[in-house]
Amino acid sequence: MSGWTEQQLAVIERTDELEVAPRRGDGSLAGKRIVWAVRVGDDVYIRSVRGRSGAWYRTTRSSHAGHLSADTDGVDTDVTFADIDATAPVGDQIDAAYRAKYSRYPGPVKSITADEARATTLKLSPK
């Protein structure tokens, strides 16, 4: 069990843009950034479209914690970020989830499924 409720997973699955605010080393939250999140089974994943150079992604490196929210009801929670080896089979499942959910945006999907972005795959878990 991932810790997500079915309601939270449903919101994440249907919401195109979520907001993530990584926790800085001093414990404060960085500014919110819009991210694309996908559900694979009962797990939630995000990536930095800018790869390791993405500012919000770099901020996750210090605490591996932050906050995730959606404009709709059901997702407004502190989270932990776990690094995922996107070369493992789950990486292909995450790619497929991005392609299915965001198929109407072919250019950005190509970027979010490229090797540079795949290297920043994070699994989110609610605290």
Rank of each mutant, 00 (worst) to 15 (best):
A96P: 02
R61P: 00
T113F: 09
A97E: 06
P108K: 05
Y57C: 02
A100P: 11
V40E: 05
G51V: 05
G74W: 09
Y45V: 09
D83T: 14
V35N: 00
G54V: 07
A100V: 09
W56D: 02
Y45S: 04
D85H: 08
D85T: 07
D78N: 07
R104S: 15
I94V: 15
H64F: 06
T113W: 15
V40W: 00
I94N: 00
D42T: 15
S69T: 13
P108V: 10
W36S: 02
T87V: 04
V90A: 12
H67A: 01
D43A: 10
D76T: 13
R39W: 04
G31F: 03
R50E: 11
G54C: 08
S69F: 00
R33T: 13
Y57D: 01
W56K: 14
V40C: 09
H64P: 02
R39I: 12
V75F: 10
T60L: 11
S69W: 09
A55S: 07
V79G: 01
G41A: 06
A65F: 04
P106R: 13
H64Q: 15
D43K: 13
V40A: 04
V109N: 02
A88M: 14
A65Y: 00
A37Y: 00
I94W: 02
D95Q: 11
G51S: 06
D71L: 14
Y98N: 13
R52A: 14
Y57N: 07
H67Q: 10
R33F: 05
T72D: 14
D78G: 07
K32T: 10
A88R: 05
S53G: 13
I94S: 00
G31M: 08
Y98E: 06
G91H: 10
R99M: 09
V49I: 12
D42Y: 06
D85E: 14
V44L: 07
P89S: 12
Y45I: 11
R58C: 03
S103V: 13
Y105K: 03
G66Q: 01
D71G: 15
V109I: 12
G31Q: 06
D78E: 15
I84W: 03
H64A: 14
V40H: 04
H67E: 04
A96Y: 12
G54L: 02
T72N: 11
K110L: 12
G51I: 02
A88Y: 11
Y105I: 13
P89C: 13
R61Q: 11
D92F: 15
G107Y: 15
R39N: 05
V79K: 00
I34R: 08
Y105W: 14
A65H: 07
D95P: 01
Y45Q: 11
G51E: 10
G54Q: 02
L68W: 10
V75A: 02
V90L: 07
Q93H: 12
R33Y: 06
D43V: 04
